[in-house]
Design a protein around this nucleic acid. Structure first.
Lengths: 238, 238
DNA sequence: CTTACCCGAGAGCGGTGCTCTCCCAATCAG
DNA sequence: CTGATTGGGAGAGCACCGCTCTCGGGTAAG
């Protein structure tokens, strides 16, 4: 079996496996660069060209162009998730408001630093492309950070599970409440968390992809205002 | 000059001009359908194929694929603008809140009915594509409707031009205030209007393009809540 | 009726994603 | 150390794409 062999090689850090991993990293690096320069219609041939290799060689490493994109997406989710998690960890656990603010600011900073990859994650979905199953775990990392804040808020009696907003939105979050990362948060609070999340990403999407760029100059102030408004919505005022 | 000839023909409604207009309409109709079925990477050859014509023939009517897309975009803007304007006209002028609600609901209804075209207008911008000048007039039609509501609100002393939000956002809306459609609205109020607009479109974008589809089931209630919150923000509470 | 021209057909160019075969060289087993 | 195995690059090729060019027929204008 070639799979077992490959596992054995990577276990022992075989030369061939290392070279393969390096090639894959190099291809992703080039693809990431081209994505930032020439937009989301990534050309596999162009990647091969820049790497000094014929186009068919790329298929030794990625099944298809979509698989290459998927790899980039997973990396991006993980990178964003790591940034967000690190930022949130750097704040005292008891300061819920600060945890919220820092989390969202980290997400925005990452998005502004990697606009192309952010577009891949949160832009208009590519019609032919369906996100494979192995993207949903990395994709939920930022959401889980927010959920943890919400859970702590609930535990200290913060957000009451019923208010105007929660009553207006019926979210089918039963199965989510059952999963480990989301346990301890009532569905109504989860619903409010999702709304908060969409507010933040709505603001970010507008800043990055908005058509009215130029009319608004101080996005920093706008984003900060948005954050605080939503924080009040979540009952994180203190 | 062929341009003068074409103008003369269209003036007199010449047979040739009429046939040409019908062909253009048919091509746009087909393109619109394919856009809805196969996503935004529209194939000019596929349009030609469906019309039973060789691909080069399309270039008699549209300079390039981008020009065809631009024509679709302008039509879509005008269609959306017409829907919004008509809805807003059907409400008594003095009922500012209702005018606001009806306007936004019309925009949402149009977006849900034409998701592909909505994506063309407000989705992630295509990297290579720069919106030509003749799109900005149609594109501003919905914004002008909102601006008119704001102006009426200002005239009856509704939204005070300074508050937390307007103070937090510095919008460079001086030149806008000078243009006819935006006259009579202080820049600070315009800034709030833009924020309101982005809130509405943020909610719509999430409903149409969101990755978490399935978690939220009652988008109607959500959107309505969003509308009323933002209306309060605009001082349209009555 | 003659002239001008609109416009479809077709070939062609360079690009794309992807498949297939060939074949060399690095690796591993004995 | 030798021979079998296999990873992976090269290259040709297929179908598609946007776009350009030329050619020629039918039609409208004068």
């Amino acid at each position: 079996m070639c799979d077992t062999l490959r596992v054995a090689e990577s276990r022992t850090g075989g030369i061939r496996a290392r070279a393969r991993a390096e090639t894959i990293d190099e291809m992703k690096r080039i693809a990431r660069r081209q994505l930032g320069e020439h937009g989301p219609d990534l050309s596999l041939r162009a990647v091969a060209r820049e790497l000094g290799v014929v186009s068919s060689a790329v298929y030794r490493y990625f099944e298809s162009r979509d698989h290459l994109l998927t790899a980039l997406i997973i990396d991006a989710y993980n990178d964003l998730g790591e940034c967000v998690e690190r930022a949130e960890r750097s704040v005292p656990r008891r300061d819920l408001l600060q945890r919220w603010l820092v989390t969202c600011r980290a997400a925005r900073a990452w998005a502004l630093a990697h606009p192309a990859e952010y577009g891949l994650l949160y832009g208009t979905p590519v019609p032919g492309y369906a996100a494979p199953a192995d993207t949903i775990a990395p994709a939920s990392r930022p959401v889980l950070v927010l959920t943890a804040i919400l859970r702590d808020a609930v535990e200290r009696g913060g957000p009451t599970p019923t208010d105007r907003l929660a009553a207006a939105v019926r979210a089918d979050l039963g199965r989510l409440s059952a999963e480990p990362g989301y346990a301890g948060v009532p569905p109504a609070v989860l619903a409010r968390g999702m709304i908060a999340w969409t507010e933040v990403f709505g603001a970010l999407n507008f800043e990055l992809f908005g058509r009215l760029t130029g009319a608004i100059t101080d996005y920093d102030a706008w984003f900060e205002h948005q954050l605080k408004t939503v924080a009040g919505l979540l009952g994180l005022s203190r």
